[in-house]
Simulated scan of single mutants.
Amino acid sequence: MTRLVFIGPPGAGKGTQAERLIRERGLLHISTGDLLRDAIKAQSALGVQAKAAVDSGGLVPDEVVIGLVEEGLEIAAGRAGYILDGFPRTVAQASALEAYLAEKNLPLDHVILFDIPLELLEARIKTRAERLREAEGSSRSDDNADVLRRRVGEFIRATVQLGPFYEQRRLLRRIDARQDVEAVAAAIASTIGA
Rank of each mutant, 00 (worst) to 15 (best):
R3C: 02
A18H: 06
G67W: 02
P88N: 11
D55K: 02
P10C: 07
A52V: 04
S31P: 08
A189Q: 09
A12V: 10
L27I: 13
V5F: 00
E71M: 06
I7G: 05
A145Q: 13
P117C: 10
E167L: 03
Q93M: 02
V64G: 08
I30Y: 08
R20L: 14
L97I: 11
V60K: 07
I188M: 00
K51F: 04
I22H: 09
A77F: 05
I116S: 11
V48P: 07
A186H: 12
P117Y: 10
A76P: 02
L68S: 05
T191H: 06
Q49P: 04
A129I: 13
K14R: 11
I112M: 06
I192A: 03
L59F: 08
A39F: 00
S190D: 13
L101P: 05
E154K: 06
I83Q: 10
G58E: 01
E63G: 01
G11L: 08
A42I: 08
I83F: 12
A187R: 04
I7E: 09
A187F: 05
I7N: 11
A135G: 07
G11F: 05
A177I: 11
R128F: 04
L171V: 08
L35F: 02
T16I: 12
A129R: 10
Q179F: 00
L172G: 02
A50E: 00
L68V: 08
D142Q: 04
L28T: 13
P61M: 03
K14A: 03
E167G: 02
R151L: 10
A50Q: 03
D176K: 15
P107E: 04
L108P: 09
V111F: 00
L59R: 09
A194V: 08
I175E: 02
G81S: 03
G78T: 15
A186M: 10
I175H: 05
L120M: 14
D55P: 01
D180K: 13
T127V: 15
V111I: 09
S138T: 14
V48C: 05
A39S: 08
L106C: 09
G78A: 14
R37G: 11
G8S: 04
I192C: 03
Q17R: 11
L59H: 07
R131G: 10
V48E: 12
A186S: 15
